[in-house]
Design a protein around this nucleic acid. Structure first.
Length: 439
RNA sequence: GGAGGUGUCGCCUAGCCCGGUUUAUGGCGCCCGCCUGCUAAGCGGGUUGAGGGUUCACCCCCUCUCGCGGGUUCAAAUCCCGCCACCUCCGCCA
């Protein structure tokens, strides 16, 4: 949710932001109208309620019977008072009902309005991203004299990934990590959590099932609702990212300025229906219904959020460099931002068999959008409160990282080089070797 | 899953049985000031949060807020119903 006051003070700014995203400007008009109706309803209710309370005090005095001039129970004055209060009681109830209807109308419209895109974010849609930088360079397999295998072939040779049995047991887009593949996941996770802790993030293992409030508050029940698994029997949602429980962690809380920024790094499974991605990335484990991920999350002030966003990006860069992967950083265009994000940077690793860069990490500044929905505030030195800013960033999405590691570090014989930094987490192994015979 | 108990403005707490000058009491903590060689103590004041009105802003006014949502009533922290969370016990389970 954006600041509702902006509707009154600077609606043109919202319209401009909607244009940059390719969103509806008409929604802004409807919001303005709904806001006016809402405020009118509030004023009506409060006026009646104030009168009701005042007469209530007179009734109380009459009852206690004390003073001269006050209406005593049973006399005409008291009867008149009672008649008026009875009418008021009816009117107040009606006004209250009208107010909650107006509030709800306004709330529904507000929930549909995405965050204001940062003015620095490139305008346009999915293909209008701007490449900010490139790190390392793709290997020239032709010069090395062999055709690169894709991660499915490599995973099979290493007996690290079993997609066939994943499909047998759970369906398409599921997989087993086996043997060294399973150990590779644990190594990446352990390394990521250790790094995060060194960088000042508090390690977390959050719940992967959340109540509607958490899902709605993080903005995943809007345009992304089709992508979310829901358990109707318990009205719980499977999270698509631990951003959800991490954002809801401090919901309904006021955080002291001295405690900011608060940094968390969570390891959790992630579940995504991947509706609408039929036929896309169907091979292997690049796009799957379930995977594990280490996610970074920061609570801070709006003012500090821009620096924090850069810091998250820097940590992601550092991580990919430690894994010795070639990658580039893009500035995602406004139209391709999620509902909650004002700005988003993706790190994309080179995938040799696809001949292109693919997203492996993503960091978003959600400014105060999620905090308004989840009622997370911070208190400044003067004691004033304002919505906090929330930011998230991938540290390690396991399957995609494995894809990038296997494909980029493969050798002609099907073995895979282990980056130096990862070796301590893999029993010191410097290479993963194919294991014999099928089974 | 079953039974009982608890939930008050940072923390503790009064008020609930018996509805109304409650504008929710007091203590602790915190903030400001006074006093004071310094510190402590003492004294005075302030201290839930949100929304609306007004305003350049402050001030001020109003409404809501006693776990949440309904109901009864002229009037609900207080009475009734439902839900949630926590605690204790039983059952079940990894």
């Amino acid at each position: 949710m954006i600041d509702p006051r902006l509707l009154r003070d600077d609606p043109d700014r919202i319209r401009a932001a909607q244009r940059r995203r390719g969103g509806s400007e008409e929604l802004v008009d409807r919001l303005q109208a709904a806001d006016e109706r809402r405020r009118g309803a509030i004023a009506t209710f409060e006026r009646l309620r104030a009168e009701q309370k005042q007469l209530g005090r007179q009734m109380a005095q009459a009852r206690s019977g004390g003073r001269t001039g006050a209406a005593a129970e049973g006399d005409d004055e008291h009867a008149r008072l009672l008649k008026r209060t009875k009418q008021l009681s009816v009117d107040v109830k009606a006004a209250e009902a009208a107010q909650s209807v107006a509030d709800e109308d306004f709330r529904v419209l507000m929930a549909a309005l995405p965050n204001l895109a940062d003015e620095q974010a490139p305008a346009g849609g999915e293909d209008d991203y701007v490449v900010l930088e490139e790190h390392g360079s793709p290997r020239d397999f032709a010069a090395e004299g062999f055709e690169p295998r894709d991660h499915v072939e490599l995973g099979t040779l290493l007996k690290a990934i079993d997609v066939e049995r994943g499909a047998k047991v759970s369906g398409s887009r599921f997989y087993f990590l086996t043997g060294v593949g399973a150990m590779l996941e644990l190594a990446l996770v352990q390394m990521a959590m250790e790094r995060a802790q060194e960088w000042g993030f508090t390690p977390m293992v959050p719940p992967a099932l959340v109540k509607p409030r958490a899902m709605e508050g993080t903005g995943f029940l809007g345009q992304a609702a089709d992508d979310v698994y829901h358990l109707p029997a318990d009205d719980l949602f499977l999270v698509g990212t631990s951003e959800v429980p991490l954002a809801a962690y401090h919901s309904d809380e006021i955080l002291g300025a001295a405690s900011l920024p608060r940094r968390y790094a969570a390891f959790s499974p992630c579940f995504r229906r991947e509706a609408g991605s039929y036929g896309k990335d169907t091979r292997g484990i690049f796009r799957v219904h379930w995977f594990d991920k280490v996610e970074m999350f920061i609570y801070t002030t709006l003012e500090q959020s821009y620096d924090a966003h850069r810091q998250l990006l820097e940590r992601e860069r550092q991580w990919l460099q430690e894994l010795e992967l070639p990658f580039r950083v893009i500035d995602v265009a406004a139209g391709d931002l999620g509902l909650s994000a004002a700005r988003k940077f993706d790190c994309e690793a080179w995938v040799p068999t696809q001949g292109r860069y693919r997203e492996v990490t993503s960091t978003s500044n959600c400014t105060q959008f999620q905090a308004r929905r989840l009622d997370i505030r911070c208190r400044d030195d003067e004691g004033r409160t304002e919505p906090a800013a929330t930011l998230n960033g991938t540290l390690c999405a396991v399957p995609r990282t494995i894809v990038a590691l296997l494909e980029n570090h493969q050798q002609a014989d099907g073995s895979v080089y282990v980056p130096l930094a990862l070796r301590p987490y893999l029993q010191g192994r410097d290479v993963l070797k194919p294991v014999g015979s099928a089974g």
